[in-house]
Amino acid sequence: MTLTADDVKKIAYLARLGIDQQDVESYTKDLSGMLELMTQMSETNTDGVLPMAHPMDQSQRLRVDEVTEQDNRNNFQAIAPQVEEGLYLVPKVIE
């Protein structure tokens, strides 16, 4: 399976990831190489094999619904690019 430059641009958009025009060709080549490597998997029959999502096969631990964290808003916002009155600022989304 090989990808085209347009495929790569589409994937980059899905990931909201800017890539330089001049690098599109090398990403296309690298990703196609990776997909080539993955064709090895299709040669192995996995019918009836349960997908393994996690090494421990454990279920999520539950805890009592109690507040355990203190309010860290000021600390967290101190490292944000742009904040105002406790809010994170981004370019206008709705006119």
């Binding site: 994937i11 990931a15 990831l17 330089d20 690098d23 990403y27 990703l31």
Partner: peptide
Amino acid sequence: RGEAFGKEVKRRILMGT
């Protein structure tokens, strides 16, 4: 994301996406 991630990180984000 485009300006701050390096090439290998981008490659893996693209592959995973």
